[in-house]
Simulated assay, not measured.
Amino acid sequence: MSDMHHLLIPYAASASEGAQQTLDGLALPHLAALLARLTPDTSRAHWGDENSYSSPAEVALAHSLGLPTQDGRIPWAAWHRAQQGLSADGSAWAFITPCQWQVSTNHVTLGDPAQLALDEVASRALLDIVAPWFAEDGIALTYDQPTRWLAQGAPLQDLATASLERVLCRDVRTWMPQGTDKQATRTLQRLFSEMQMLLYTHAFNDERGSQGLPTVNAFWVHGAGQLPSPPAATTGVPHIEPSLQTLALGEDWRAWAAAWQALDAGPLAQLRQQAEQGRPVRLTLCGDRGVQSFHTVPRSLLQKVQSLFSPQRLKDVRNKL
């Protein structure tokens, strides 16, 4: 269960010019009041760039869960098994998502897997087709969800992978998996090519085409890593606010602004009320470059007075994200 006293907001800001212009004219009174009341937690701050493997929101969540936060090496698949009560047994695990790559002269774009309309029956049938190819390279695949399988094997060890949100509707070549083991990296690169060739003319896709469904011609590997033992969470699991992410990725800044205003009038207003009632709260804001976290701590009278004269604080915070 998520902790309603800790609100984590992915895509709270963006380096995009459209996002910056939108924020310049956006009134968020409850957010501004919260930032004036709360204190920055420098131990939770994180800075990267738009091309890092792990998104700032992933890093912030991993920190709260007590997971490793090294870029691209947050072991989400192994942690998922631990949450199911299954042993990760020290092995390297990863998620494999069947998807569609749209190849053009200058780009290789990953489409949204949700638009493939894969159900469990189709996903399991596809898994049966590709699993033997992975097995030849020491990677065992098992079913988890229609658009996500579990993978286990030595080639996944110490592998930096990017989350789906990092590559969604973008050029995948920026975030191809990279490992310290060059042979493992080459193995995955070959598997990417083999799966494209296998699925290009496969009867599985012929059948989907006859039904007017999108073809599946590739896969994406993400959440790779090892988790020898389940971590002890450092705090409660934060409540993650999802409303800004899809709009920011689609650069629909008008709708993003409306979502921000709804967020300010709803969850942020509630968090502000809790803070004003003296309850401990935490607010974590994530952009596409960094994380800033704020929490309640005892403050001196001078600090309280100074917070009343910080109209630039909100702008300073979002410019860093």
Rank of each mutant, 00 (worst) to 15 (best):
Gln21Phe: 06
Arg148Cys: 15
Ser14Met: 04
Lys315Tyr: 03
Asp171Ala: 02
Ser54Met: 11
Trp260Arg: 06
Pro29Tyr: 00
Gly236Ser: 14
Pro132Arg: 10
Gln102Arg: 03
Val317Pro: 01
Arg173Lys: 14
Lys315Asn: 08
Pro298His: 08
Pro228Glu: 12
Arg289Met: 08
Arg173Asp: 01
Met1Asn: 14
Thr142Leu: 05
Ala122Gln: 14
Gly18Tyr: 06
Gly85Trp: 14
Thr246Gly: 01
Thr97Cys: 09
Tyr53Arg: 09
Tyr53Glu: 08
Ala57Met: 04
Asn319Ile: 03
His107Ala: 05
Glu194Ile: 00
Gly266Leu: 04
Ala203His: 12
Ala151Met: 11
Pro113Ile: 10
Ala82Arg: 09
Asp171Gly: 12
Pro146Ile: 00
Pro230Ile: 04
Pro68Trp: 12
Gly212Pro: 06
Tyr143Trp: 10
Phe192Asp: 07
Ala154Glu: 09
Leu188Arg: 01
Glu251Gln: 15
Ala82Asp: 15
Leu34Trp: 07
Arg190Ala: 11
His202Met: 02
Leu285Tyr: 05
Leu23Ile: 10
Ala259Tyr: 12
Thr174Gly: 01
Trp256Arg: 13
Gln178Ser: 07
Pro68Phe: 14
Thr284Trp: 07
Thr39Asp: 00
Ala255Ser: 13
Ala162Trp: 08
Leu302His: 02
Lys320Cys: 03
Ser64Trp: 03
Asp252Asn: 13
Pro29Trp: 11
Leu26Tyr: 06
Ala15Leu: 03
Trp76Asn: 04
Ala88Val: 01
Gln83Glu: 09
Leu34Phe: 02
Ala27Tyr: 07
Pro238Ile: 15
Ser210Phe: 04
Leu150Phe: 11
Lys315Val: 04
Val103Ala: 03
Asp49Thr: 05
Met195Cys: 08
Asp288Ala: 11
Ala78Tyr: 01
Gly72Val: 12
Ser52Trp: 00
Met195Ser: 15
Thr284Ser: 10
Lys182Asp: 06
Pro29Glu: 04
Ala12Arg: 02
Ala262Thr: 12
Phe95Lys: 08
Gly236Phe: 12
Phe309His: 06
Ser293Ile: 01
Thr39His: 03
Ala36Arg: 10
Trp260Thr: 02
Ala114Ser: 11
Leu188Ala: 02
Leu263His: 10
Gly225His: 11
Ser87Pro: 15
Ala151His: 13
Thr39Pro: 00
Gly236Tyr: 09
Leu198Pro: 00
Leu247Asn: 10
Thr174Ile: 00
Leu321Tyr: 03
Leu244Gly: 04
Gly278Phe: 09
Arg289Leu: 05
Leu34Ile: 13
Leu321Cys: 04
Asp206Leu: 13
Leu110Met: 05
Ala60Met: 10
Arg254Ala: 13
Ala94Ser: 04
Cys99Glu: 00
Trp220Arg: 05
Gln183Ile: 13
Thr246Tyr: 14
Ala162Asp: 10
Trp256Pro: 02
Gly278Ser: 14
Ala82Ile: 05
Met197Ile: 14
Gln100Asn: 09
Ser91Ile: 00
Ala32Met: 08
Trp93Ser: 02
Pro298Lys: 12
Leu188Gly: 10
Ala45Gln: 15
Thr246Cys: 05
Asp119Ala: 12
Asp288Phe: 07
Glu207Ala: 15
Val291Met: 00
Gly278Lys: 13
Ala203Leu: 11
